[in-house]
Amino acid sequence: MTDTELEIRLDRLRRRQRVLAWRLSILTFGVTVGFFALMGFNAPVLSRIVLGRSVTVANVLAAAIILVFLLSIGLFGRRATRIDELMNSQKRGE
């Protein structure tokens, strides 16, 4: 790959990464504020038992939200690592 091609590819990846950063931030923000609003509204669905004798929707939802946060940083980090690798190879003149 030539320097110009590499630069074009890097620019495209950086643009996508910026879009991804905003999408994931809005997702994180929305999920958090949505969860707080549900808790604040005292939504009856949250106290429904869904697992075993006493695990409610609120507990499952909280664990799921934290899992989504972890998956989102994994996705963002993976995409960012690809950009780092390309930038390193550009620096080395490959």
């Binding site: 994931l24 931030s25 994180t28 934290i66 963002f76």
Partner: peptide
Amino acid sequence: VGGVAGWPIAMF
């Protein structure tokens, strides 16, 4: 949930 929520946004 709140304790974790801010860190992904700080990263992104």
